[in-house]
Computed example of a mutant assay.
Amino acid sequence: MKQCLVEAAEQGPTFYEIFNQFKTFNKGKKTNMIDSMLQMLEQYSNNLEDLIQEGTEELEIEKQKTEKLLSQMLPPSVVESLKKGCMVGAEGFDLVTIESIEVVDLLNDLYTFFDAIIGSHDVYKMLLSRDLYIPDRKVL
């Protein structure tokens, strides 16, 4: 018990070490309630470690998907700035004749127009991917 009373958990004994110490106290006798409790705690600890590892792997996969998507949509310099948490300012080019605000206004008008059309029919708006199929629905 004294070995377990340390401030940093990594300095104390593992469940396996504690379990082995209790085995030596028991000297081959029938297991008791403490042994059973230690076995359950060890199993819980191992399961928790597995869950954490699984969650970490899933998070890494999602991070890679996000980075791939960003690299497909944005220039590399913008992606790197966003990863670092920096603000990305607008850039101007002399040879460009359409201003970005005009493009945003045009897209906003288009989406508003599409929403008005959708509202007058028995349909709803949804994003489709190659893997998604919803039968018996009208999709615009």
Rank of each mutant, 00 (worst) to 15 (best):
K30L: 04
F25S: 07
Q39E: 14
N26T: 10
N20V: 03
T14A: 00
K30Q: 09
K23F: 05
D35G: 13
G28M: 03
M40N: 13
F19M: 07
F19G: 08
M37A: 14
K27C: 09
T24F: 00
I18T: 12
T14F: 00
N26C: 06
G28R: 03
I34H: 03
E42V: 02
Y16C: 00
D35P: 01
T24H: 09
K29R: 15
M37L: 12
N20A: 06
L41F: 10
E42A: 07
N47V: 04
T14E: 01
N26S: 08
T24W: 03
S36L: 04
S45P: 00
F25E: 10
D35S: 08
Q39P: 01
E42G: 10
F15K: 03
E42N: 11
T31Y: 05
N47F: 03
Q39A: 07
T24R: 14
I34R: 04
M37C: 08
S36V: 05
Q21H: 15
L38D: 06
F19T: 09
T24E: 15
M33F: 10
K30P: 02
N46G: 02
D35M: 13
Q43F: 03
S36I: 10
E49T: 12
I34P: 01
N46R: 14
N46D: 13
K30H: 11
I34A: 05
S45Q: 03
L38Y: 05
K23Y: 09
G28H: 02
Y44V: 11
Y16L: 02
Q43H: 12
G28T: 07
N26V: 03
Q21D: 10
L41V: 01
E42F: 00
Y44T: 10
T31H: 11
F22A: 04
K29W: 01
S36E: 14
D35Y: 05
L41Q: 13
L41R: 08
N26D: 11
L41W: 09
D35F: 01
Q39Y: 11
F25I: 12
T14R: 03
Y44K: 11
M40C: 04
M40Q: 14
E17V: 09
Q39K: 14
K23M: 08
E17K: 14
S45K: 00
N32Q: 07
I18G: 02
F25D: 12
I34K: 04
I18V: 12
G28W: 02
T24L: 06
F22Y: 15
S45R: 02
M40V: 10
G28A: 01
N26K: 11
N20E: 14
K30M: 00
M33I: 09
Q21P: 01
Q21C: 07
T14H: 00
E49A: 07
L41N: 09
F15N: 13
D35A: 06
T31F: 01
L48R: 13
E17M: 04
L41A: 14
K23V: 08
L41E: 08
L41S: 08
N47L: 04
Q39N: 12
D35K: 04
K30F: 02
F22C: 10
Q39R: 12
E17C: 04
M37H: 15
S36R: 15
K29G: 14
Q21F: 06
M33D: 13
N32V: 03
L41I: 05
E42Q: 15
N32Y: 01
Q39C: 05
K27I: 00
F25Y: 11
S45H: 13
N32T: 09
S45C: 02
F15R: 00
F22L: 13
K29D: 06
M33Y: 11
T31L: 07
E42K: 13
N20F: 01
K23R: 12
F25R: 10
F15T: 06
